[in-house]
Design a protein around this nucleic acid. Structure first.
Lengths: 209, 209
DNA sequence: GTCTATATAGCGATAGAC
DNA sequence: GTCTATCGCTATATAGAC
């Protein structure tokens, strides 16, 4: 497979294969679920032998946990929770809402959420890990932004953390719920834009001084 | 087993056994998930033989679908979407919010949602059925109520259906999201009351004329 | 129509060779 | 450190007796 010069007695190929295994596991677990994904399939998709999989990850549950955590880190959002000087309030909130809406509507995010809700019911530690790696950070950033907005007097927000939760719940809204249930397709870009404008306007009306 | 008089050549015992099988399947699927629930376990829990299960339901998927649909019908809410004459707007919305919050926080509802999101990703027809049996009806009732509230001039609601979606999303909120992820316990009654009061107040502020 | 016993297949995990 | 071949187990679905 590799005709490169051998790089010592260590484990030069480990990282590449480990990465390939994780990538294959992520894809298979996300699309097929935990039970329907066999270790054979992971090994085949990663282009390695099954025993190689077991040498890197002790068992199926460990591999699953590692794959989920790796996917969580990919989900790290590049949302910026800062308030540019002189920007209009509505535009600031709209930018965040658009970014968040795109994030949660991605195929990977939907499948990851389903997987954690399903398998996490028997192993809550995954839900905990996911929540702290993703939603909790987003909420913290939004909380800080809303606190600043309150201090500037642009909105009247007594509890910024709760307000941040309300904000993201509104942005997710019924479309995300239907998406997770599998009974609706993702919003087209025009519909998504309409949705975020509506909820941002609602949010501003509710917290107007 | 039965020393009653035989009731003809028909299938007198079918319905009772079918009900027992459905009940056992509901409990097992909800708590263990699809893959971890064996037909043996269902038969044992129902007090019948495995072949009896197969005689009533052709295969595991059919049994699963029937159990999910039966559970959906149990979830029929007794929320009343009517506006008593002379009642205060906030109290009307609070009553609905409390009932809805209790409904979605029940153990059965949480497990059912998880199950449908997980298994429904490969069989979207279940998600469709569930949505129309549950959320869609609730939304329709709330839409009618909000239209009436708008016509009385109590609130200014241009799109009652969208407003209803926003309302229930707010009531669900972050607590329900964390509950589904498995990383938080259900709200204590005092916390739940605080939550519904907060979101109802938010909703009213947002739609005040 | 219902139960006991079984066929068949697929998966997780491992033993031994290179 | 990696691959081929295999064990042991479980679960779905069925065949035959009462």
């Amino acid at each position: 497979m590799s005709n490169d010069a051998p790089t010592g007695p260590g484990r030069p190929k480990d990282l590449a294969k480990r990465e390939a295994i994780l990538e294959a596991a992520k894809a298979l677990f996300l699309s097929l679920g935990y039970a329907n994904t066999s270790m054979d399939a992971v090994a085949a998709a990663a282009g390695v032998s099954k025993l190689t999989v077991y040498s890197h990850f002790t068992d199926k549950q460990t591999l699953f946990g590692s794959a989920v955590m790796a996917t969580c880190q990919n989900q790290l959002p590049d949302l910026l929770f800062e308030y540019p000087e002189g920007a209009a309030l509505e535009e600031v909130l709209l930018t965040i809402a658009r970014g968040f809406q795109a994030l949660i509507s991605s195929d990977e995010a939907v499948k990851l959420t389903r997987l954690i809700m399903a398998q996490g019911s028997q192993d809550p530690s995954l839900g905990q890990y996911f929540y702290e790696a993703g939603p909790k950070r987003v909420l913290a950033g939004m909380e800080a932004l809303l606190r600043g907005i309150d201090q500037r007097g642009l909105l009247r927000i007594a509890n910024p953390l709760r307000a941040a939760e309300h904000f993201f719940c509104l942005v997710k809204g019924a479309p995300d719920y239907r998406l997770l249930l599998g009974c609706a397709a993702p919003l087209a870009s025009a519909e998504a834009e309409l949705h975020v404008r509506e909820v941002v306007a609602l949010f501003i009306r509710a917290f107007k001084p």
